[in-house]
Design a protein around this nucleic acid. Structure first.
Lengths: 221, 221
DNA sequence: GAGGTTTGTCAACAGTGTTGACAAATGACC
DNA sequence: GGTCATTTGTCAACACTGTTGACAAACCTC
């Protein structure tokens, strides 16, 4: 009953995702999305109660590209590592939408898929429920958080990125060595290599710490 | 020479900080800040090239409350832990400004103080320059990232926060157990306790992993 | 065909950052 | 003291943003 719907949540979220892919996430506004769909901006409010909800749906839409099924024979650590790396990669691609996904768990389908997969691998690795939950939160904080930090520069070209890192390194090196001796001494290694490398290093360190915690706990208890 | 300046970067940033403390960071707009300072909004652009730059200055202003000098006899791990905890606490208090500080190193005075202090403690802990830089990046990614995740809820009252965590926990518990067996099984432990606890757990795990890495490297090399 | 319901359209409101032309107020120079 | 250049704040405007309430079109049910 009622006037037939030209729009739908699916059509809207797909058009929004395409708009974001083509023109960046800052181009996602009610008016531009209305133009893309050939409808009035206010029509969107018939399907989403506000732009925030719409954007969270778009964010979850992008999470679909994270592969959560573990390959045959893949060690649980490798699976966790891979999921975190892919999750971060997705968020780097759409930083503004990632901000919404990160603000609160959307509890939409793709996010649930990832949560389930991470918990599955952790429990496969011998984590008890409480330990698995704690480890999950730690991994998410590092992964989503690192993405938040690296997102701004990730949007720029590799050349620009390297230049920015170089600028920062040189800036630290040029500081007053009497006031900032350690920053000056270490400057050559700050922002060295890629953000991906830095994240994977941190992820490995965190995983090692998490495993150590669960092992000592297991032997004690 | 020229017309005497009624405004200055200091006056502006202080008024902005006060405005943020009293009415939240979303209240920081050119017009409201102009009202608070008794000047036209556009006058701000004589001192900051745009609102982004102004907001980054305000963000750095808040970083001043992080104490970076280590107490007498404080172990380096304890100092690192404390600095990270305080840094996160500051960012939780002003989430929108934290987003700007995190987007790129502001390289303003307070941020430099924190960077210097963290590197100092790490090197005191036996980290070689390259290892100290890597550890520094890991710690920042976790700390600033965790703040980004927890910021939204941190703004609400403790009661609302607990209620939100409870809602999420119950939502995970109510999922289809055939599709999400692990999420359902672990649901009771998800978002359990405070965000502070979860961060400190992750921080300790990361620190343990970082120490282990530097120790094995030290014994090998 | 009449009524009810859903869905899209239109105009408007209250905000936002930002810019360019203008005026006020100074120090420097003659 | 008068002129001039420079700095600094004011004003009006532009192009946006999300969002809402009144209205109309299009369908289903009776």
């Amino acid at each position: 009953m009622g006037r037939p719907a030209a729009l739908s949540r699916e059509r809207i979220v797909e058009a929004a995702a395409q708009l974001v892919v083509e023109h960046g996430s800052e181009a996602l506004s009610a008016r531009r999305l209305g133009d893309a769909l050939g409808c009035d901006p206010s029509a969107l409010y018939r399907h989403y109660s506000n732009m925030d909800e719409l954007q969270r749906a778009v964010g979850d839409h992008f999470l679909a590209s994270v592969r959560v099924t573990n390959k045959r024979g893949e060690a649980w650590q490798a699976a966790v590592h891979r999921i975190c790396v892919e999750l971060r990669a997705v968020q780097l691609r759409q930083p503004r939408l990632a901000a919404l996904v990160r603000a609160a768990p959307t509890r939409l389908t793709n996010e649930l898929r990832i949560t389930e997969a991470l918990l599955r691998e952790l429990r496969r690795g011998g984590f008890a429920p409480a330990a698995a939950a704690a480890a999950y939160h730690s991994l998410i904080e590092l992964t989503v958080g690192a993405a938040a930090i690296d997102a701004t520069l990730a949007a720029e070209s590799p050349a620009d990125r390297r230049r920015a890192y170089g600028d920062w390194r040189r800036h630290y090196a040029s500081l007053d060595a009497t006031k900032f001796p350690n920053a000056v001494a270490v400057a050559g290694h700050l922002y060295d290599g890629s953000a991906d490398d830095r994240f994977e290093f941190a992820l490995q360190a965190l995983m090692a710490g998490l495993c150590a915690a669960v092992e000592t706990h297991a032997t004690v208890a």
